[in-house]
Design a protein around this nucleic acid. Structure first.
Lengths: 236, 236
DNA sequence: ATATTCTTGACAACTTCTTGACATGGTCCC
DNA sequence: GGGACCATGTCAAGAAGTTGTCAAGAATAT
């Protein structure tokens, strides 16, 4: 059996700190506590923990700054602990290289699961990303991502750039509902209200690829939510 | 893996405390007793129980306050013990995140059943969340959170946006009682009196997912309190 | 300049949400 | 047990909100 992994907790509130510490020690982790950002950084360099739990609401240094400092020279996994509602800070932390986040309140098993996951990620070097399939088919519709060509019933279909981008987005996520906002962010980048444009584009795509655009079989509308491309055609 | 689960009892009356304690120890639970709210909170952080039984009629701190404090950082299941007639307090506690309630006087099997349910609920949902499990199943009902699709008996069920949101809320908290107010706040945001609308929506969901909407098996009504989704179909 | 593509506007078609009236069912008290 | 009372469930209709379509104007590329 391995040596106990060491966890550094950077957290100013005693109650939470003790709570986490109690959970971890009874689950075979070694715990080091820091009550301020300064102390945390110094303990980080002196003790070299395997993983860090970092509260974002520290009194002395902004949590994101601590993270940046750590990331300057180390890849040690950092799990950010944030209060509900502080979404912005949380996202910023992830942007700067936090590995995961956990929102207060959390449960024992949730905390342990996240720590396990983060540790696993760090030991396993980044696995190669699976290469995407180069082709997509449903019913009489076929997309060749390589050639950037779409066939309907064997015949080439002409799509404009946005139309193609949309179709690829949908097909790469076939079976899944994509929300309007998500689609718009993916296609147009920053979010501006392009919902109407999106609707028109959808209509145009459907006119080109659907047998009967009024009753689409490939791209379905999920009212109030978004669109979904079907994976397989089966129903009558 | 079965270490005895630890139960923290926060209860000032000796008789009840001993009664509960006796039941639990003879059923393979570890018991920690606190006679005041203060003591309860400190034992909570130091011992990290798996579940808490919280009496609402404590001498020093209001029970709901204790619950709030706990809920600031932890999701440890809390079962509220209330005296008959103190409906308001009970509902308030559930609003603030208590998992279940039990009304004095109660029987041995009732107590044990509630504890089992709460424990199952906490380990299941927490781990599922942390691991990004995107699925929920009970009986013939299945929810695929990723695809945003609900199946009944293998067949796709169409739900409107509000209906889906409601079902997700209930299923993510399966086993737990959700009060009307809590549900309304979660779904409609600020609280306005949507209780009637909520009832209509519930009826519509039940019509779609229940075998027999008149005698629901998935979404149960807790009279005067709220709704609860069952986790597993087994007991008679 | 011309052809293509993208965006915008007006309106029609449709789905979902809310509301009110009434039915049902459980609880408490006499 | 009967009846009043309250909480919950059901149904239907109108209001509100979403999506689809067509067509014309703006932007872009060639």
């Amino acid at each position: 059996m391995d040596i106990k992994p060491m966890v550094l907790i950077i957290e100013d509130e005693d109650a939470i700190c003790n709570f986490i510490s109690a959970i971890l020690t009874s689950n075979d982790y070694q715990v080091v506590k820091a009550k301020t950002g300064k102390e945390g950084l110094s303990l980080f360099t002196s003790r070299v923990p395997d993983i860090i739990l970092l509260d974002l609401g520290l009194p002395d240094i902004d949590g994101v700054e601590i993270l940046k400092t750590i990331r300057q020279w180390s890849k040690t996994p950092v799990i950010v602990v944030s209060a509900r509602g502080h979404e912005r800070e949380k996202v910023a932390a992830l942007d700067f290289g936090a590995d995961d986040y956990i929102v207060k309140p959390f449960g024992t098993s949730e905390l342990l699961a996240r720590i396990r996951t983060a540790m696993r990620h760090s030991t396993q070097s980044a696995a190669a990303e699976a290469l995407g399939d180069e082709r997509f088919t449903t019913g009489k519709l076929e997309i060749d991502y390589n050639k950037r060509v779409v066939y309907k019933d064997g015949e080439k279909v002409h799509l404009t750039p946005i139309e193609y981008k949309l179709l690829v987005l949908l097909s790469r996520n076939a079976g899944k509902v994509l929300t309007h906002d998500f689609i718009i962010r993916e296609i147009w980048g920053v979010y501006t209200d392009e919902s109407h444009t999106l609707r028109v584009n959808m209509a145009n795509i459907r006119r080109k690829i659907e047998e009967n655009p009024g009753a689409p079989q490939y791209i379905l509308t999920e009212m109030g939510v978004g669109y979904r491309m079907v994976e397989e055609l089966d129903e009558g």
